[in-house]
């Protein structure tokens, strides 16, 4: 049943990366419980534009939970109170009438704030790029079953590849560590025969880039796994450790 909420929003406002930001408080009323969190911000922004104020800048794209853009730290948790969802899939029925909701950007030195709730996550792109290429034929697609891959391996690789690079793992981690992300990207290739060829070099290069970008180390708290909208498993971090240390002793 659709209901309506009156809410107090404490939203982080910051002009750009070079100036300090601060919280601004806004009141919104008549918010439908069927709205997504982003639609609620849309309503607020419409109102701000009508009165000539600067709307709240936030990242969004697909609004169906697969692009990983909607980075918002809501009431102390990435993507808000529900597990396994991004902010666009978070609905206002998850909140109570009269509630105060605090919205912050991802906070990590590797994710500088561009404006308000928008952060620069290009560090993730550079980690992926550091992984380099995969040696596969670029001609016609080869016949099916030419390269036998056990179903379990394919499933596991696919589960790792489900990572959408949203950065919730970094946002949730007390060390702003990107290990869940990096390990998923290493795993999705390391698990498949095509990825085995460059596995050692890839693990070393991606970990080096991750450190260079200024992400923290892992305390194995498991916060990343719990907050990941795609359910990426901590097993990937263990696999990354195995890949990395075997590369330490085997790469040339």
């Amino acid at each position: 049943m659709e209901g309506h909420l009156n809410l107090t929003l404490k939203i982080w406002r910051q002009k750009n990366a070079n100036v300090a930001g601060k919280f601004e408080t806004y009141q919104v009323s008549g918010i439908s419980t069927d709205m997504s969190f982003l639609e609620m911000i849309d309503v607020l922004n419409n109102r701000l534009i009508e009165v000539g104020d600067d709307p709240v800048a936030f990242d969004h794209d697909c609004r169906e939970g697969i692009c990983g853009m909607c980075s918002m730290y809501i009431n102390g948790r990435p993507h808000g109170p529900n597990r396994g969802v991004t902010t666009c899939q978070l609905h206002m029925r998850s909140f109570q009438d009269g509630e105060t909701i605090t919205v912050e950007p991802w906070r990590a030195s590797a994710f500088p704030v561009i404006k308000d709730l928008v952060v620069n996550r290009s560090a993730f792109d550079r980690i992926i790029a550091a992984g380099g290429f995969v040696s596969v034929n670029t001609g016609n697609a080869q016949d099916a079953n030419n390269l036998p891959i056990p179903k379990d391996d394919a499933d596991e690789a696919f589960a790792a590849a489900a990572c959408i690079g949203c950065g919730a793992c970094v946002a949730a981690c007390k060390n702003a560590s990107a290990m869940l992300f990096t390990s998923a990207k290493i795993s999705q290739l390391a698990l498949l025969p095509q990825g085995k060829v460059e596995a050692a070099k890839r693990a070393e290069a991606m970990v080096a880039q991750m450190d260079e970008e200024g992400f923290g180390a892992c305390s194995n708290t498991g916060a990343c796994e719990a907050e990941c909208p795609k359910g990426i498993s901590l097993e990937n971090i263990a696999r990354m450790n195995r890949e990395y240390f075997s590369a330490t002793f085997s790469s040339k």
């Binding site: 060390n175 702003a176 305390s219 708290t221 916060a223």
Partner: peptide
């Protein structure tokens, strides 16, 4: 090392929800 990775702290952290 880890302390430096989040120069601006969160205002609200619900750590108990995930660890």
């Amino acid at each position: 090392d880890n302390k430096k990775k989040r120069p601006v702290a969160y205002a609200v952290v619900d750590g108990a929800a995930n660890s």
